[in-house]
Simulated assay, not measured.
Amino acid sequence: MKTNILITSAGQRVSLVKAFQTELRKKYPDSKVVTVDLRPDLSPACHVSDSYYKICRANNENYVSELLEICEKENIGMVIPTIDTELRILSENKGLFDAKDIHLIVSDQEFIKHCRDKRELNDFFKNYDIRFPQPVDKFNPTFPLFIKPYDGSLSKDIFIVKEAAQLTDFHLTHPKFMFMEYVDPEFYKEYTVDCYFNKSNELSCAVPRQRISVRSGEIHKGITAKNHIIDYLKEKINTIPGAIGCITFQLFFNKDNNDIIAIEINPRFGGGYPLSYEAGANYPKMLIEEYFENKNIDYTDNWEDKLLMLRYDAEVLVRDHE
């Protein structure tokens, strides 16, 4: 059986690579975690992995063939995608990986399509009776309002417009901008929820973590919270057809009235997942047991409440680098 694991677009995901190394070696001591990246020589996660490879961009026509070639060379049994831009192309080619007995941990095309286009995501939320920020007519706006692109990520091109004077032609004519109601942070706190969906597309774990501080779109300071969000998600999305592995929900939560407003779904490991892992939500172990050992993954809430994460910059030093 092939038990090596490959993590794509490794970048700075040092903690994620180390988590998979730790859990994999508990069960398969001789197995390894391989990484790929566009610039692996400048990727700290690649340098802490057991081996790494350079690969073209996900939108290159050779991406899938290059990835499969690396998988065969390294005897890979599982692939973990980590960025939005590769999810669609990998989902479309999942059959090629299945044919080579490689577990590609990616949700199906339809679910990914909903997540990548925030216009369709609002329809998804509506179908599941989940509240989301209501659209605002840009030609007859009410203020304050919030603007973001329908296919954006990493908090790029987002704007809070508090009065008409701040609204420009750039905002009004941009073809990808969505105008929506502004959620006041004085009353609502922002959370990311790390969810695990098993092979049967059932919710098996949900860890809300409050985004106390964010840097470059990724959580910098955060804390786990066992609160109403968990029961809400268990009621609303106990099953999502096509969803597998780690799925992150972003939402706003008003603890005074338990109101929840959902804003995004990312069908992959989020940058802040290491907090959930350290709290005990062991998704690498779940993946290994479910896909390598064919174990059933039932619902668990056996993770630590009120665990605070304070991130800082650290260094990976590479000697004799050219």
Rank of each mutant, 00 (worst) to 15 (best):
A10F: 10
A10I: 12
A10V: 09
G11E: 04
R13I: 09
V14M: 11
L16H: 03
V17E: 02
K18E: 01
K18H: 01
K18W: 05
A19E: 00
F20W: 03
F20L: 02
T22P: 03
E23I: 00
E23P: 01
E23Y: 01
L24G: 10
R25C: 04
K26Q: 03
Y28H: 05
D30A: 10
S31Y: 05
S31M: 02
K32A: 03
K32V: 03
V34R: 09
V34K: 06
T35D: 05
D37K: 06
L38E: 09
R39F: 11
L42N: 11
L42D: 12
L42V: 11
L42M: 14
L42I: 10
S43W: 00
P44F: 04
A45I: 03
C46T: 01
H47Q: 10
H47Y: 14
H47E: 07
D50S: 15
S51R: 12
S51E: 13
S51A: 15
S51H: 13
Y52M: 03
Y52I: 01
Y53M: 10
Y53Q: 10
K54W: 11
A58Q: 12
N59P: 06
N60E: 07
N60D: 13
E61H: 15
N62M: 09
N62W: 07
Y63M: 08
S65P: 08
E66Q: 14
E66S: 12
L67C: 07
L68I: 14
I70G: 03
I70K: 04
I70A: 07
C71S: 15
K73E: 15
K73C: 09
E74C: 13
E74P: 12
N75W: 08
I76N: 13
G77D: 09
M78K: 00
M78A: 07
M78F: 08
V79D: 14
T82Y: 07
T82F: 08
T82V: 08
D84Y: 08
D84W: 12
T85F: 07
E86G: 02
I89F: 11
I89S: 12
S91T: 02
S91N: 05
S91V: 06
N93H: 02
N93D: 12
K94G: 00
K94A: 02
K94D: 00
G95S: 04
G95I: 02
G95R: 00
L96M: 04
L96A: 05
L96N: 06
D98P: 05
D98G: 07
D98M: 10
D98I: 05
